[in-house]
Design a protein around this nucleic acid. Structure first.
Lengths: 209, 209
DNA sequence: CTGCTAAGTCCACAACCGTTGACTTGAAGC
DNA sequence: GCTTCAAGTCAACGGTTGTGGACTTAGCAG
């Protein structure tokens, strides 16, 4: 195969040349695509647009990701992570979910224009991207939530929890530019936490049901 | 017989000729567009497709609705109707909302392929259609719900209620074609009703808070 | 230096998009 | 009959889309 054993790491030829760096270009394309897809939806975002943002040629996008769908699939595969709201245990899910929903607004990614929840909502209706998103949503979000519970009716509770979290992300987007006075976030936070709490633990022992 | 005052209604010249009926053509276009927009999203649905379904020429669509956006706006303006879940009074909202969410599955419109909630979710991320949908959602759904309440924090409660209802519609669509076993609808119905109930009346007097 | 390979660019194809203006057709008024 | 006007069709425009192949260029091995 090769000369002897000297070329054990043959894949670290150059790294900080900052020009002609395939890995860096790939990352820049991904970053630009995240923003465009989440803000303009799958069909609304174009390859040329994304390539322009990343500062590369559109053909390079095809080279690295095969197709527009391949590019989207790669982004979708890392968009959902239930660990964000499950790291504190299942009982802390309501507070962690609300914090995640509110906290993303201050994250660096959000300010750069990317929001994983918005990525889902923007393209869930697309015939091409919808099924992909459904898959990862089921595998990486609803599934782990259900698995983390030990109550009965786990699957159904996980579905309703996801509905509440995603629904809030939806109305936050839909009502972002409304004309009337905005609702108070602190109140929204309290109401949503309580609703999640009921879905998570209602019907057990201490519930009124 | 009639030569003088007979022509009082000059705008009912022909009606049941079934050919060359502008009103009927307009209605067929609207019906076809509802289905295409709700299933393929705003950008995913094409004028030619819609016109083909309606059995008319694409140019006729432009004649009647001015533009694709005009056609979509007309559909969106009648998509949301809070009366569906408010007709029984504010206290009956949870049950009526859940019935509406479940009942649409048996409606004739649903079987024909049209779902107002899906119309919203499919195109909320579109730069062109999103703002239109946000407007009508605010005016015809969230607004009336808030107006029907006499509790404090009406606006915020209405937002959370809408989030839960729309979120459920979202996961219903997203998880429609999942591989694993489907959640039991009766359980989902009970959990969602309870969550809506808490959002609607929690924090008043009888709540645990 | 000369090769060699990966990284990147250029150009164009074929399909589709929304939209428009000129044209045709059918029904009603005289 | 002829005229008139709305209803509807036809063909095409300019633009954009995703994608593929040919080409060029930069960096490293020999």
């Amino acid at each position: 195969m090769n000369a002897k054993i000297s070329s054990v790491p043959p894949r670290k030829r150059r790294k900080e040349t900052s020009k002609r760096d395939a890995e860096a270009s790939r990352a820049r394309i991904l970053e630009a695509a995240k923003i465009r897809f989440s803000q303009n939806s799958y069909e609304g975002a174009g390859i040329r647009e994304i390539a322009g943002d990343a500062g590369v040629d559109p053909a390079l996008v095809m080279r690295y990701f095969g197709s527009k769908e391949g590019l989207f699939r790669e982004i979708a595969s890392s968009a959902f992570d239930a660990d964000d709201i499950l790291s504190g245990g299942i009982s802390a899910l309501p507070q962690q979910a609300v914090e995640m929903l509110m906290g993303t607004l201050d994250s660096a990614e959000w300010r750069r224009g990317y929001d994983p929840l918005r990525l889902l909502l923007a393209s869930i209706g697309s015939p091409a991207a919808g099924p992909i998103l459904s898959d990862y949503l089921d595998r990486d979000f609803v599934g782990p939530i259900a698995a983390a519970m030990d109550l009965k009716e786990r699957d159904e509770r996980a579905v309703i929890l996801a509905a509440q979290i995603l629904g809030f992300a939806l109305v936050r987007i839909a009502l972002a530019g409304r004309k009337g006075r905005r609702p108070r976030w602190a109140v929204l936070q309290r109401l949503l936490t309580k609703a999640l709490d009921v879905t998570l633990s209602g019907g057990s022992r201490e519930g009124a049901l």
